[in-house]
Design a protein around this nucleic acid. Structure first.
Lengths: 185, 185
DNA sequence: AACAGTTTTTGATTTATGTCAAAGGAATAG
DNA sequence: CTATTCCTTTGACATAAATCAAAAACTGTT
């Protein structure tokens, strides 16, 4: 999904406004397995995924990677708190496939927020959508068996299950790779 | 924390604006154990908690209550998706203590959003703060032992642990009451 | 103060999932 | 095309936490 289509699906914009807003973003082609943000860095850019796939993850004390979220086409990805608070990121962000993204800096986004009330509104709508999804995942994780969690994932993100490595999905769902492998069989 | 203080802590407002914004809210005294929203209802109001405490919860298929979130002083409470999408609520919302709240309808809030860009901004900031907290909880729940989860709770919400029934906290943390009781000892 | 109801604690047992280890498959690079 | 590395599956065993059950400690009400 293109950024223009995404914007228009949430807020009405005339051609001029749309052009101006898009001009604040930069298109980038990013190869798979590229790190966009590392732990401890301050996230400089927010990325809109036009095509491809990314994930955020963090490292547990024992060094294990825990996938925190997957970002597919039509989604914004970033280390949310790091980008908005300009604080060191707790997460890594990387592409899992060759991706086309539109990125924007915090300064430019703030310009958009102050120039367009509609962009504030968009920010609010996107945040609430994300909040709802995270809450859904939390409920799924918190009181369901490993099998039910995998079924939740198949429903909520059907494409991810075959595009992404098993280990990434397992940690996303809060279980080991071995358990997920047994469930799938 | 009063609603006025809360607003001013996030966005600058002159006296007139503040007065006007506050006039859209209604103050209510709500006794403890009052149900504000039941499952299946469409949430009519968003509540700002000035004092007291509330929680949202849902029922599993087996009838067990799962606490989804606690709302203390200075927080907005509602069934987020139900209120903003005006869809049937998946959650119950109830007070756990006598509470003073300021409530607002969706129509009035939308008026505020369109009259004041600053209110859109506030909506965005509040959503992102909530998103960050939910993500933190998710991380805590997903890969920590029951004991570590309880410790996370003591840090993040120190007051809740002694104001709220054990069973409510246990389900919030994704464990049984018995387990939490053993951890506490 | 005593009762009824609720909430918390304690004990014994079961179970889902984690851990460790190794083998089998698939992907990537030279 | 072959070798190296990475990813997935399978097996045996360990363990944290759930379940079931009952006793003990609170709480509020008459």
């Amino acid at each position: 999904m293109s950024l223009a289509d995404f914007l228009l699906s949430l807020i009405p914009l005339d051609t001029e406004e749309l052009e101006d807003i898009l001009s604040h973003f930069e298109k980038e082609d990013i190869p798979k397995n590229t790190m966009l943000i590392a732990e401890g860095e301050i996230s400089k850019r927010l990325y809109f995924t036009e095509s491809g796939m990314g994930r955020s993850y963090y490292l547990k004390k024992d060094g294990k990677e825990i996938t925190q979220w997957f970002f597919g086409s039509g989604k914004f990805m970033s280390s949310v708190d790091s980008f908005f608070q300009q604080s060191p990121s707790f997460y890594y962000l990387e592409t899992l496939e060759d991706s086309v993204v539109f990125s924007i800096t915090k300064e430019k986004l703030d310009q958009l927020f102050s120039n367009y009330q509609k962009m504030e509104q968009l920010g609010r709508l996107v945040s609430i959508e994300m909040l709802t999804k995270v809450v859904n995942k939390l409920n799924a994780i918190q009181f369901q068996t490993a099998k039910e969690r995998y079924e939740y994932m198949l429903e909520e993100f059907p494409d991810i299950s075959y595009r992404v490595a098993l280990g990434h999905i397992a940690s996303y769902l809060g279980m080991t790779q071995e358990t997920l492998s047994r469930i799938r069989r």
